Simulated assay, not measured.
Amino acid sequence: MDKTPLTQRGADALREELKRLKSVERPRIIAAIEEARAHGDLKENAEYHAAKEEQGFIEGRIAEVEGKLGNAQVVDVAKVGAQAGGKIVFGATVEVADENTGDEFTYQIVGEDEADIKSGLLSFASPIARGLIGRVEGDVVDVAVPGGQRTLEVLAVRYE
């Protein structure tokens, strides 16, 4: 299986989530199950069944996060940027202008699990990122997006 690229910030966020799940959420749900058990008959105990279901979700998320971290290739953005020669690569922060509207946007190209378009974090697998990767400052790119065609001019490329 291929490694999945992840920025250091994304890897740190997953590690923090894993720590919270194991040290806060897991003990909380175990205590809730014990408390519900103390109420007696488990067949008709809604609190017990709800707590067991939540435990299943928490354990599933722990396994998912551990799998993502185990399969992650953490990318040092500054190091990759030094080798990129000004090209847009994974981890790059890119300023673009939409030639149709004149709007300017700043995106960082990140792993799929880190993507959050509202925060300017764009998955490397998204149509815009795929259109930008390999381009340099000054390039004009036509990108097919779900809403139609966009023409973007690359204004700046940074590696931070």
Rank of each mutant, 00 (worst) to 15 (best):
A125L: 14
Q149C: 04
R28V: 08
N100Q: 15
D98Q: 07
A72M: 06
G40P: 03
A63N: 14
P146M: 05
A51V: 02
L18R: 08
Q108E: 08
I30E: 13
R130W: 00
R61Y: 08
G70N: 01
D116K: 15
G147C: 01
E160S: 10
E104V: 11
A13P: 01
K19N: 13
G102Q: 08
S126L: 03
K52H: 11
Q108C: 08
N71K: 09
E35A: 14
I88M: 13
G147Q: 15
K52R: 12
A36R: 01
D76L: 09
D139K: 06
D139P: 05
P146R: 13
S123I: 03
E99R: 10
L42H: 07
D103I: 00
A51F: 00
K43D: 11
A36E: 01
G67P: 02
V154R: 01
G56Q: 01
A78W: 09
A82S: 13
I117F: 14
G138V: 05
V80T: 09
A13R: 03
D116G: 10
D41P: 04
N71T: 07
I109E: 00
G147R: 14
E99D: 10
G70D: 11
E17C: 09
T93A: 10
K52E: 12
E47T: 05
G131E: 06
T101E: 00
G85Y: 05
K22D: 07
A97K: 15
E53K: 11
L18W: 02
E47C: 00
K52N: 14
G111C: 07
G67Y: 05
F105V: 03
N71Y: 09
E153D: 12
I117A: 12
Q149D: 06
E25R: 10
E34P: 00
A38Q: 15
K43H: 13
A13V: 06
T151A: 13
E104D: 12
V94A: 07
R61P: 04
V89G: 02
K3M: 14
Q149L: 15
P146N: 13
K79S: 13
I62Q: 05
E137K: 15
A92V: 11
R150S: 09
L121Q: 06
G91N: 03
E53H: 13
E53R: 14
L155H: 02
F90K: 03
D116N: 15
R15I: 00
G56W: 06
A46K: 12
D76R: 11
V140S: 09
R130E: 02
H39V: 12
K43E: 15
M1L: 07
G40E: 07
P5A: 04
T4C: 04
G70V: 02
L14Y: 04
E44W: 14
V141Y: 00
I128G: 04
D2W: 06
G86I: 02
T4F: 05
K43C: 06
P27G: 01
K52G: 03
G120H: 08
A125K: 08
N71W: 03
V80I: 01
D116W: 13
R9M: 07
G111N: 04
A72N: 03
T93N: 07
A156T: 11
D113A: 08
E153S: 15
D12A: 10
H39N: 13
G131N: 00
Q73D: 15
L18P: 00
